[in-house]
């Protein structure tokens, strides 16, 4: 049996897996753009579509948002 990686190696490998998966984080670190505020528009679009697809989720979202919205900006609620 081949030698198993030590615990430290395992954690390092796992952390690097996580880092490599996130392309925006890697872009920021490799190009030294630490201050860059990236807007993940595609995720946002998908979120909107999710509420269209599943009425219950949209309903719960409205329930969840309501008190927050009211306290923050009462004029905007219809």
């Amino acid at each position: 049996m081949a030698a198993l990686p030590t615990a430290v190696q395992i954690s390092a490998d796992i952390l690097s897996r996580k880092e490599r998966a996130d392309d925006i984080a890697r872009l920021k670190s490799m190009m030294e753009l630490h201050a860059l505020e990236y807007v993940d528009v595609s995720a946002h679009m998908e979120l909107l579509q999710a509420f269209e697809r599943w009425p219950l989720l949209a309903y719960l979202e409205a329930q969840y948002k309501k008190p927050v919205d009211l306290s923050k900006d009462p004029e905007q609620t219809p």
Binding site: D23, I24, R26, L27, M30, M31, S42
Partner: peptide, 13 residues
């Protein structure tokens, strides 16, 4: 394509 070629970091290294 978005998970591969279209990644923000695809061509950096």
């Amino acid at each position: 394509v978005q998970c591969t070629f279209g990644r923000a970091d695809a061509w950096l290294d």
